[in-house]
């Protein structure tokens, strides 16, 4: 499979990365080079193989239902949450107006 300018433009849009025409042109051969190379995986017979789900055999641990048990994973920290915001007003984050 290989990508063309339109495909790369679509991927860039999905990934929300603005690209210029010039950048697009440059990216197409680069991405095709990488994609052609990774496609050698297609030659591996994996018909009876399960995709890896846990690199080290392990199962999911669950947490107890307790609010703010650990301050690092709890809430009630509005100042810390907003501290680095480019725009914060009245306790909210601000973004350009969205029309739904």
């Amino acid at each position: 499979m290989s990508v063309d300018t339109a495909t790369v433009a679509k991927i860039a849009s999905l990934a929300r990365i603005k690209v210029t025409e010039g950048e697009l042109e440059a990216m197409v051969p680069e991405l095709n080079g990488i994609l052609n190379w990774v496609e050698q995986l297609g030659e591996v017979d994996t018909s009876n193989v399960e995709p890896m789900t846990a690199v080290i055999p392990n199962t999911l641990r669950l947490r107890e239902d307790v609010v703010d048990a650990d301050p690092l994973t709890g809430g009630g920290k509005r100042e810390e949450v907003l501290a680095n915001a480019p725009v914060a007003e009245h306790g909210f984050f601000g973004v350009p107006k969205v029309i739904e």
Binding site: V38, L41, V44, T46, V49, E50, P51, M52
Partner: peptide, 11 residues
């Protein structure tokens, strides 16, 4: 791509 890669990863 992705599923195949995770299978090869298993191998």
């Amino acid at each position: 791509y992705y599923t195949q890669a995770q299978k090869v990863r298993t191998l």
